[in-house]
Nucleic acid binder design. Structure first.
Lengths: 267, 267
DNA sequence: AGACGGTGTCCCGATTGATGGAACGAGGCG
DNA sequence: CGCCTCGTTCCATCAATCGGGACACCGTCT
């Protein structure tokens, strides 16, 4: 039974329990035991045992009226332990803040996880009122790497094997007016980024959304993250975006890399 | 019979697996299998099975050099699913932002979890440069309720049973110059808050830290959260804090409660 | 009222998945 | 070099998990 599949040496119970936790999200914040058991193909008894365990530990809370369950505050602890254990964040934060202050724009920091970028930090433009370009882009949010400036900035500098794997697993769906949908065109785009050091996103993710991004390297030289600066199309043209903010973005990324201990190869 | 044990109907494996996840934090970001097995009193094999499961699912990542493990980006998903499933956040966010803009101060939103408050949202003062009062108070951070303005604002309006339980479980340790360490004095303080509608923290948590907070009620009338406005002692006196910002704080909290569907009792 | 289909919860015997000792290879250190 | 500790894998044993079944509870429909 355990023969062929790759499940040797793993715990079924833990996997199922976490599957229950991940069943909850913004769209489905309240789930009942039966609902969960159906979704994960478990018996009601089994689902209930996991739910009871999670509730006992504070990861789930039972709603008094509906008897259904919701995520508890305890799960926040995990996420923020993860954030805090990245010293990248600590190092990058002041630079991000300065960049945001200087430019009066929203800047973000993200890492690559599989084929997606994950937002790690975010500084909103100090001045409110300007058009909010929110696709629900809070810290922790995920976007496909192939159609974001930060994703491309990172992928331009990963190893060939890793890039091949990401491209292999990526579904190049057009999400914006200018989304790159051809893997070969995408590779050429990365090549350009590799020489310029700056990645652009000109409405590739969504209509009206423009951003520029630069990669951040660790002390060992490998790319570990990217930062971007995002604006709405009505605010500034692509050329102006690059001309006015490109140098500040690449320089901030460069400074963070230096602080991480990265010694650049000669230009 | 089933009362004392508490372990009936729960999953040992899941509990252990989650214990492994929670072993990671900012202070201990990298842990090895042996280290974990010792800390949780498991065999190395067992610990490894859990770790392998967590790694397979993306909750842990193995460091290539040290072979030890760190939290993976996947755990962020959980935390932010929790945040996003609170419609409180969606409703409160614009009010918090407005309050922060108007007052040019940092404002926070928190809920109660057991004896602690958990930060749910945070708007920093738009103008940087003013003294940063950071006790690592990011979203997700926890503080004891008894020595924070938000904690007191919430506890002043919870049911008598819940309050008794919290007080019972609270260790009244002096953390600042004015920390309330006597449960009876604490109860009187809550009584005052109940009539004034405003909770104050005058260096009860830490030297120099002052804040005022007001409770937020749900449609059913029960208290579900609190918001605060925090300043450093050098910036403003306690009286001035209450006089200048008190009305804005209570009004913002009130407006959020109204948006949540709360119909106030006549003043 | 009564029957019904749904829920969450609890119990218990069968069995399946978890357990941990042992062993291996890889490093690190003196 | 020996010695230790690490992560990892294997496997026979066994205990923890499993799921059917039963219960109480809730609306809804007949």
């Amino acid at each position: 039974m355990r023969a062929s599949d790759g499940s040797t040496g793993t715990s079924q119970s833990l996997e199922r329990g976490l599957a229950i936790l991940s069943s909850f999200n913004s769209d489905r914040p309240l789930l009942g035991v039966s609902e969960l058991s159906r979704g994960l193909d478990l018996s009601r008894s089994t689902a209930h045992r996991y739910v009871a365990t999670l509730a006992k530990l504070g990861y789930l809370q039972q709603d008094a009226d509906s008897k259904r369950y919701r995520l508890g505050p305890r799960v926040l602890d995990l996420g923020f332990s993860a954030l805090n254990s990245m010293d990248l964040l600590e190092i990058a934060a002041p630079h991000l803040r300065q960049l945001s202050d200087e430019t009066q724009r929203t800047v973000n920091l993200a890492i690559l996880d599989g084929t997606e970028v994950v937002y790690i930090e975010r500084y909103r433009a100090a001045r409110p009122g300007q058009r909010e370009i929110d696709l629900n882009l809070h810290v922790g949010a995920r976007l496909p790497a192939y159609c974001t400036a930060m994703g491309k900035a990172i992928l331009a500098f990963v190893s060939a094997e890793r890039l091949d794997e990401v491209i292999e697993r990526t579904d190049f769906v057009p999400l914006g007016p200018n989304t790159l949908t051809d893997p070969e065109a995408f590779r050429e785009e990365l090549e350009k980024i590799r020489t310029s050091g700056l990645a652009v996103n000109d409405e590739e993710l969504a209509y009206g959304l423009r951003s520029i991004a630069a990669p951040i390297h660790s002390h060992s030289g490998e790319v570990i993250a990217a930062l971007n600066l995002a604006v709405h199309r009505t605010v500034v043209s692509m050329d102006e975006l690059i001309a006015r903010f490109g140098p500040a973005v690449t320089q901030a990324a460069h400074e963070i890399s230096l602080s991480m201990g990265h010694r650049q190869a000669p230009a």
